[in-house]
Simulated scan of single mutants.
Amino acid sequence: MNEFTDLKRATVSVPQDLDYKFKKVASQKFKFEKGWYSKAMAEAMEIWLKYNNLIQLKNGTNSLGRFVGKLIWDEWKQNFQNIDFQTANESTNQILNQFSTKSTYVENIDYHINNDDLKIYLKSYTIDDKPNMVENLLTEYLQPITIITRAGIEDITGEHYKINEFKVGKSSKIHLKKVD
């Protein structure tokens, strides 16, 4: 089936500089392949819809972390098609397994779920072992683990969680707590 059979042609007006920036990034991603601009516009519309649905579902919450976490979690769920997520435990296992197998900074990841709390503990290699370790640990592991795990738990449970504690170091800790 041709991917262009059910297309709707639309004429829109956007600021010239925005169009230029969009076309620059879109052409780099799609490499001027046939239909590159249409593909980029469709992808942009999908992201806009997800973003605005998230804002409506969360009563006005427009945090970038929540938005990115939801996008990544939705993408990851597709990779776990054979898993029927029923509990926060199952989603947390899958998320943390993704990080623990690829880590150059984290020796061990463990977590505990107790009622309305999720506590994730990360034991790191000594900070002196690698340059820029604290920054890399934070940006490559702690932030992504936090936003993706929160999105997964919220998706599975239908509850809202906040970051209650966030500690970076040789023994890092992420504490997510359900909001009443």
Rank of each mutant, 00 (worst) to 15 (best):
M41W: 00
M41T: 14
M41R: 00
A42P: 02
E43I: 06
E43A: 15
E43F: 09
A44Q: 10
M45N: 05
M45L: 15
I47D: 05
I47M: 12
W48E: 14
L49Q: 13
Y51W: 04
N52Q: 11
N53A: 01
L54Y: 04
L54W: 02
L54A: 03
L54H: 05
K58D: 03
K58Y: 06
K58M: 05
K58P: 01
N59W: 03
N59H: 13
N59D: 14
G60F: 03
G60K: 01
G60T: 03
N62T: 05
S63A: 09
G65C: 01
G65E: 15
R66F: 04
F67W: 09
V68A: 10
I72V: 15
D74H: 02
E75G: 06
E75V: 08
K77M: 13
K77D: 03
K77Q: 15
Q78I: 13
N79I: 04
F80C: 11
Q81A: 15
Q81C: 02
I83L: 06
D84M: 02
D84Y: 03
F85V: 03
Q86I: 05
Q86M: 01
A88C: 10
A88P: 05
A88W: 01
N89Q: 14
N89D: 14
E90H: 03
E90T: 12
N93F: 10
Q94E: 14
Q94V: 11
Q94W: 03
I95W: 01
Q98F: 15
F99H: 10
S100F: 01
S100I: 14
S100M: 10
S100R: 12
T101N: 09
K102A: 09
K102L: 12
T104D: 12
T104S: 08
Y105M: 09
V106R: 04
V106M: 04
E107N: 14
E107F: 00
N108E: 15
D110H: 11
Y111K: 02
Y111G: 01
Y111A: 02
I113Q: 10
N115T: 09
N115L: 07
D116H: 04
D116K: 04
D117H: 07
D117I: 04
D117K: 08
Y121A: 06
Y121D: 07
Y121T: 14
L122V: 04
L122P: 07
K123E: 12
S124A: 14
Y125M: 03
T126H: 10
T126Y: 07
I127G: 00
D129P: 00
D129R: 11
K130F: 14
P131K: 05
N132R: 07
N132M: 08
M133R: 08
E135T: 13
E135N: 11
E135G: 05
L137G: 02
L138M: 05
T139C: 02
T139F: 06
E140Q: 14
